Computed example of a mutant assay.
Amino acid sequence: MDLRVWENPWRLMLAVNAAVLIGVFWHKITLPPYVPYIHLLVDYHFGFTKRALIGAVISLFAAKVPVWLVFALGGAAWLITAGLFVQLFRRTFGFDEKHLPLFVFMAGSPFFLKNFMHTLGHFDIYGCLFAICLLLFPARSLAYVLLAAAFSATLVLIHHIHLLMYVPTIAAIVVLRHYLVQGVSRQNATVGLASLAAIGLLFIAAQFYGTMAVPEAEFVSYLQSRMANPSQTKLLSFSYIWYQPLSKEVFDTWQRLPHNLLGIPVFALLIWLHTPLWRYFLNLIATLSMEAHRRIVAAAIVVVSLGYLVMFAMIFDYSRWISNWTVCMFLILYAVKALPASKDTPPISADDRKTVVFGWIVTLIPRVGIVRPF
């Protein structure tokens, strides 16, 4: 290994993170992909259906769906997301020595790429991927607002929970990168409000009119006909989620709430371990040259956080929600970095002993999980 890696703990952390990611991947492919696989089978065969867009696209190219496709598609989405994130970081900060701690706390966070590897095949990563694309694309024209609306509509069709999970962050990125820079005109305000209304209506359609209208036995029989190996019937055990009303999801969440709340201290500890990054984020906001920009950034963070609070009350995949909330904060940080600042923000100290310890702990934690911590 290069001598510089051993001399610089932050470079060594990157190498260890790569090794941890490989371990998480090998563990992941040994697990049965119950939820991700069934999403590849569901399409619009019985009419408009929630959570069916990815399966509908696959049905255009393949009549039978093998299990390995979960890992192939999930792995491709992960690689593209990771690659675009690296490009975003390089373009925003650069890969000089002074910014390595920031990269480690983001890319090496157990909330981010490592947890996306653990949830390989789930739909969360698509929201992150689209948001990174919007951070990379130029935001000068009205086409940017329309592209964000198209991304948001696609996410809602993939899974309607994206209305709370990543659509608010996408909206925040559009506001910070387009409206605060280009200004608000009658035309772009009209397009923005119309886009929000259309996405809201699409969510209502998916949530309340996307439930299966045929008996569950007929639905399962159709899904089995699309399986490359129809004998693996256990992989269809989650078919009930296309019939379960919102009230039942909320009831189940509150039934599990006392037990799941035991994980809150762990989540708080994991967030606290990112203190150097949060301190940098706050300093970044504080150095914005306009007070109005600081207030709008604060409002965007509150709105995004409220969306996740609503999800906490509705669906019990708490580890995923906390992880994606943290990723959304990372993404908003990049949008803030693009705003005019009165002075440069000092980078995270690479020599501070406490920061180095936090960096190592964050590096060694393999992932956060799906429902409960780890």
Results as ranks from 00 to 15, higher is better:
206 A>W: 03
207 Q>D: 00
211 T>K: 07
214 V>Q: 06
216 E>K: 14
216 E>P: 09
217 A>N: 12
219 F>T: 01
219 F>K: 04
222 Y>A: 02
227 M>R: 02
231 S>C: 09
232 Q>P: 02
233 T>F: 00
236 L>F: 03
238 F>Y: 04
238 F>G: 09
242 W>C: 07
243 Y>C: 11
243 Y>K: 11
245 P>I: 13
245 P>S: 10
246 L>S: 02
246 L>F: 06
247 S>G: 10
249 E>M: 15
249 E>I: 15
251 F>G: 14
252 D>V: 15
253 T>E: 00
255 Q>W: 09
261 L>P: 05
262 L>P: 08
265 P>Y: 01
267 F>L: 10
267 F>E: 00
268 A>K: 04
268 A>L: 14
270 L>Q: 01
273 L>V: 02
273 L>N: 07
274 H>M: 14
275 T>P: 08
276 P>A: 10
276 P>E: 01
277 L>T: 02
277 L>Y: 11
278 W>D: 01
278 W>Q: 06
278 W>S: 10
283 N>Q: 15
283 N>Y: 11
284 L>M: 11
285 I>W: 06
285 I>G: 02
285 I>F: 04
285 I>M: 05
286 A>E: 12
292 A>W: 01
293 H>C: 04
294 R>I: 05
295 R>G: 12
295 R>V: 08
295 R>T: 10
295 R>M: 03
298 A>V: 14
304 V>M: 11
305 S>T: 15
306 L>W: 04
306 L>T: 03
308 Y>G: 12
308 Y>K: 12
308 Y>W: 06
309 L>S: 06
311 M>D: 00
314 M>D: 03
315 I>C: 00
319 S>N: 04
320 R>P: 02
320 R>E: 07
324 N>C: 12
325 W>Y: 03
